[in-house]
């Protein structure tokens, strides 16, 4: 009947939440990098700021829809229960979404801002008071937002990792894995968006920046996944049993072939291949559009699969048969 209490909506939400965290992080970082006090990645920063709030806003909406009694979701904010990861997470998510929207507002151009406020009746004076230029706050907002973006990235993993009754999830490494996966999908999504934006074609140094960022995050993610498997093998019998789900069990192919190989190693190889000559041989960075498109797409695909595998495989792994349907 219902072997899976959490389904595809949760997978999509975990992916979108992480995506926003990664987008905000990459965009904020781009905003900070300057040469001769001139921002070199301003276009990246703007694109990221404009994109960042939307996935998490949609994801939160899905999350509320997934609740059985969705009209009672406000009760989440009448309580604060520090023992419940979901309670902590709902606050984190809300604060992060708000910051991301303020950050978006700070990146709007003068005419865009005026256009938005032209849609508001002129008599709503209090609303029109918000029509101010806060572009000078960009760095400060990004600074405040960084911890929250990382928090959201970690939280999506902690939500699963803190459940002691599911051995497949119950390791500290899941949170870090999800964080790095979120950051890498964020920079990949940013790369994809900039490549697809034909009006302002992406410049080579921007591609190089995003590809470098992605290589760093994918490598970090890889360094978490391998310990996760080794650590699990050396851990208690329950965790070892749970890992058979991806080591010979029903999730083996999707984990090794589609996630690890196609979603992680192939894009990593492409990106390293692209970067290698420019970093170690002093050649100019070519920035092949097709290569970048493929790598970014695959990273996003892999990020989604990671959530899929964890949400579904985790729910199969369990201790007791007491209340299980057979």
């Amino acid at each position: 009947m219902h072997e899976f209490n959490w389904g595809l909506l949760i997978v999509v939400y975990l992916f979108l939440g992480g995506l926003s965290a990664g987008l905000f992080f990459a965009a904020g970082l781009a905003n900070y990098l300057t040469v001769d006090d001139k921002p070199v990645y301003a276009k990246v920063a703007r694109m990221g700021a404009l994109l960042a709030p939307w996935p998490v806003a949609i994801g939160s909406g899905l999350l509320i829809l997934d609740l059985g009694n969705w009209y009672r979701f406000y009760k989440l904010f009448l309580h604060f229960r520090w023992q419940s990861p979901m309670s902590i997470g709902s606050y984190l998510l809300t604060i992060f979404t708000l910051i991301a929207f303020v950050y978006l507002f700070a990146w709007l151009k003068e005419d865009e801002r005026k256009w938005i406020f032209s849609k508001v009746p002129a008599t709503w004076k209090q609303v029109h008071r918000l029509n101010v230029d806060i572009s000078s706050w960009r760095e400060k907002i990004a600074m405040v937002g960084f911890p929250f973006s990382i928090g959201v990235g970690i939280y999506t993993g902690v939500l699963l990792g803190a459940v002691s009754a599911r051995p497949f999830w119950n390791t500290n490494l899941v949170a870090q894995m999800f964080l790095f996966s979120a950051l890498s999908s964020g920079s990949a999504a940013l790369l994809l968006a900039m490549l697809l934006d034909r009006k302002n074609p992406i410049e080579k140094h921007e591609t190089k920046f995003l590809v470098t960022l992605d290589v760093v995050f994918i490598s970090l993610e890889l360094f978490i996944i391998l310990p996760y498997i080794i650590h699990g093998q050396l851990s208690s019998q329950a965790v070892k049993d749970a890992l058979t789900l991806i080591l010979g069990g029903p999730y083996t192919v999707v984990f090794w072939v589609f996630f690890l190989f196609l979603g992680l190693l192939v894009p990593l190889a492409i990106e390293v291949y692209e970067l290698f000559p420019s970093i170690f041989k002093g050649h100019e960075f070519h920035g092949s559009r097709r290569m970048a498109l493929t790598a970014a797409g695959l990273v996003l695909f892999g990020g989604f699969l990671l959530r899929y595998i964890f949400v579904y495989a985790g729910q199969v792994s369990s201790f007791h048969r007491m209340g299980l349907l057979r």
């Binding site: 059985g68 002691s164 369990s318 007491m322 209340g323 299980l324």
Partner: peptide
Amino acid sequence: KCIGCRYCLQACPFHVPKYE
């Protein structure tokens, strides 16, 4: 009070709570 998030179903090591 219940919002129907089904976190308890995930957390129970005995798989006891059942959801409507």
